[in-house]
Design a protein around this nucleic acid. Structure first.
Lengths: 331, 331
DNA sequence: AAATTAATCGGCAAAATTGCCGATTAATTA
DNA sequence: TAATTAATCGGCAATTTTGCCGATTAATTT
């Protein structure tokens, strides 16, 4: 069993329903393997014969028990999960429906003392107002509530913002697959994106890049909201060339319901902010959902942030201008 | 010109002297491309004919002017350099000679106020004493001195520690190539390495992983030196299976001169701390050079650290027990 | 339920990649 | 300087990977 066969098996292992050759190929390409669809089918055939996979005809293939054993025998078990895997998972799990505005969205949560939040409220609102946040919505979670596997401790509130992964999920419902490439620190001049000054690929990190930049104090939101020159967290994604128009439309609709997050859309085959894109794709710069929380850190209030913290019903979200009011009235 | 040809050209472009097919192949494998030596030669031949490269016979090939133009036309210019590139570069540049104990070593530098350093001195010494630092040597740089392209500002000292990349350079002189895979946060129990809890691959990040972990306050050195349970910065590397014995010897010799940094050596084909290694290689866990500086951050003193800051003559290094004395007498 | 559409699979041949190896040349040692 | 050693290159054939396409099947529409 060679490297590529292992890669195929690993994809099959993560799904319980049968997958077609094409699906597997797309996944492989998204995880950095260079391979053609035909070759995947070729290997699948071999592995059918070796009893590693089970053939359900046109409905696809599943991994067999023997396949699972063999895969585990190779010892290639990824203990520390890379962020790209988590992104995939969350994208599939969320259920937000753009038409009806119902369902769950992926959120980031920062634990913070209410006082601190109150102090920084003006600046946080400014981040939203200037469009340096993902949309205009947020939510507050109170002690005892849980999100994902975490729970809000007494004396704190959970400052929850919509995660930009939510965009992936929405697009997916329209059949558009997203390739989330990296998170980075984006330099702004005159409120315009100029270039990425730091980059961390999603498929090579277990730590969320934006969390790292924010906690390290490398961001400069105060500059961004004051003069328009600063450094903010953003991420770079790719979409199939054919979907350019649809993406643009959806972006507008998302904007209109307060969930816009696209800062820049490139064109097929053309690099965006000097970042080259893969063939047959176009690039996009998406604002980091964790951004508003960075203000707290910049003002010296240490916070615990968790990107991709969990799913939250979109009914719980409210407009950022309501934040101070809700803070006062408490839970 | 396809993807692989581009990759070859890019390697040639970074060197001024001619490179042989084998050298190019090793570089390619190190930067993540899967390709055989023969194929590289095949493409080189094609590119000779296309005038993209110049053939110097057995001495190797160089990129031609036309080749440079073509490469630039592809637009694939990596603006933000990944750390793996910088690691390579520094490895070639340093000149430390293990036999004679002369030459330059790669160092990390943290800018810190002397008072703070004084306050944390005991704990820093403990980090060295417990073996959680790279060797036992360090150096102090004073205002006005420069290291790499940085300069020590008035009122600060540069706390310089030997970077673990120095090990790569030493091994290289014995013909052993190093594959630096990732930097991570290593969990310790009873002073023993247990597992990596976070990981960032070197070939997908522009920010040094250890810098990120330290500045984010994710490390736990105080725990490590107090009870033996904590989290420290470490990195994972791979070496060719054949060199196992030589690496072990060199590690001992490095230890004896106060520049030891290996925490664990694996065996060919066997995973180390659940991290699988590539075929024909064995893994090694190397202590992060930046580690002692983390103590400062953990005590709430914000510092500016720069991994791979520059080269320093090894004559400048002294034993950590001399630190406080030298601090008092100043420059 | 029948007709239409879209996607899947695998055969075949072409193209790309690789392993093997002998001839040649550079580097090192005697 | 001559002899020896080590590394390089490219020819050839085997192997791997891919493109193309018709047959078949699932999903969708009429």
């Amino acid at each position: 069993m060679n490297r590529k066969e292992q890669a195929i098996l690993r994809i099959l292992k993560e799904t319980d329903k049968p997958l077609s050759g094409r699906k597997i190929t797309t996944e492989l390409l998204h995880t950095g393997h260079e391979i053609s669809e035909r070759t995947v089918r070729l290997y699948l055939h071999k592995m059918d014969e070796a009893g590693l996979t089970q053939n359900f005809g046109k409905r696809g293939r599943q991994i067999s028990e023997h396949g699972v054993e063999e895969l585990e025998a190779t010892g290639i078990i990824e203990k520390v999960g890379f962020l790209s895997a988590k992104i995939h998972q969350m994208t599939y799990r969320m259920s937000f429906d753009l038409e009806r505005e119902t369902g769950t969205v992926v959120v980031n949560v920062s634990l913070v003392k209410p006082e601190y939040l109150q102090v920084c409220a003006v600046e946080i609102e400014k981040v939203f107002a200037e469009g340096f946040a993902m949309g205009e919505l947020l939510s507050l979670l109170y002690p005892g509530e849980h999100i994902g596997r975490a729970i809000i401790p007494p004396g704190y509130v959970g400052f929850a913002t919509v995660c930009s992964i939510t965009l992936n999920g929405v697009l997916l419902q329209y059949g558009i697959p997203t390739n989330s490439r990296f998170g980075g620190l984006l330099e702004l001049q005159n409120k315009e994106a100029v270039r990425f000054v730091e980059i961390i690929n999603y498929d090579g990190t277990s730590l969320d890049p934006l969390e790292a930049f924010i906690r390290s104090g490398m961001t400069d939101y105060r500059g961004a909201i004051a003069s328009g020159d600063g450094k903010i967290g953003a991420s770079f994604r790719e979409f199939p060339a054919d979907s350019r128009e649809l993406v643009e439309n959806l972006a507008k609709r998302l904007d209109s319901i307060g969930m816009g997050g696209f800062m820049a859309l490139g064109w097929p085959g053309q690099s965006l902010l000097d970042i080259p894109v893969n063939e047959g794709n176009f690039g996009a710069v998406v604002i980091g959902g964790l951004n508003p929380a960075a203000i707290l850190e910049e003002n010296g209030y240490r916070i615990t942030s968790r990107a991709l913290a969990g799913l939250l019903d979109c009914q719980r979200l409210f407009h950022y201008r309501e934040m101070t009011k809700r803070l006062k009235q408490g839970s």
